[in-house]
């Protein structure tokens, strides 16, 4: 088993799929998260309901969508409604179990930035902004973040908090007025899996990817990551999981060959 060749992104997606339980409502964005949800549906969680911000509720995914407004994600849905129906009537009222988000920067409290690098008014780089990410981060019971592990991405403090993690401490969300004040947050990178240390509201190392050392993780993180005494290793992918991804979910190799935005 251990000698099956796999791509880092494939294992990230497989790990993410294990954080989705059967019967849950999952709010997906674009790219790798969709592969993770589809994999969960095809393995341990056949009764997962997908919702997408443009108004799609419960589609039967034929091909994994590449954009949140892709026509493919409308296929055989239970409802093609409005953005408000999904963001307010499902997400804000607290029905979403798992939400996927991402950003150009993530900081020690798992806050995400998808708005600007540098000064807000005179930025080095302007990004698209929140979209649905802020509402997902505000209201989903659990958050999953799949991201490459780079030093410039894992910063001590985001230049701009687009989507709140724990903001500035264990009660940061409560103080800000967010009703979902203690969500579980899991960050899955090519080096490791992180989650939230409840005492500090900061990210801590949970698992290492196979063949990765704690030193490598620390080296590629700009803030002081909490390292618990015992750190597990992520399971290697099984042949079944890889076959599902390669033959059924992404036979064209779109998600794993091109750079996703």
């Amino acid at each position: 088993m251990g000698d099956i060749a796999y791509k880092k992104e494939e294992l990230m997606v497989i790990e993410a799929s294990k954080h989705i339980n059967d019967g849950e409502i999952v709010f997906t964005g674009i790219g790798l998260p969709v592969v993770a949800v589809t994999l969960a549906q095809k393995t341990h969680a056949p009764n997962v309901t997908v919702v997408v911000e443009s108004g799609v509720v419960g589609p039967q995914l034929k091909l994994a969508p590449l954009s949140i407004a892709d026509s493919k994600i409308m296929r055989r849905a239970a409802r093609l409604g409005s953005l408000r129906e999904v963001l307010a009537c499902i997400l804000q009222r607290g029905m979403v179990d798992v939400g996927f988000i991402g950003g150009a920067q993530i900081d020690q409290y798992a806050n995400l930035n998808s708005t600007v690098i540098g000064d807000y008014y005179k930025p080095k780089v302007r990004f698209p902004g929140s979209g649905g990410a802020n509402p997902i981060a505000s209201h989903a019971k659990r958050l999953l973040i799949i991201t490459p592990h780079q030093k410039r991405r894992f910063v001590k403090k985001c230049d701009y908090i687009t989507s709140p993690g724990y903001i500035d401490g264990p009660y940061g969300r409560k103080n800000a007025g967010l009703r979902m004040w203690n969500p579980s947050i899991t960050v899955i990178t090519d080096l490791c899996v992180m989650d939230i240390d409840s005492a500090s509201g900061k990210l801590q190392l949970a698992k290492l990817m196979p063949d990765v050392t704690i030193e490598q993780v620390v080296e590629n993180t700009s803030f002081e990551l909490i390292i618990p005494p015992k750190v597990d290793v992520v399971d290697l992918p099984t042949e079944t999981e890889l076959n599902l991804i390669r033959k059924e979910i992404d036979p064209e190799g779109i998600y794993f060959s091109n750079k996703q935005n």
Binding site: E53, R84, L91, P135, I161, T162, P164, I167, G177
Partner: peptide, 28 residues
């Protein structure tokens, strides 16, 4: 953000001056 923005249109379409929203809180 999208929920805040669509809530602004929701207020507008109902002839209301503003709309309560529970996202954006704690963010920049």
């Amino acid at each position: 953000e999208h929920l805040g923005m669509v809530s602004r249109f929701l207020a507008g379409e109902m002839g209301l001056p503003f709309m309560p929203v529970m996202s954006s809180l704690g963010s920049d």
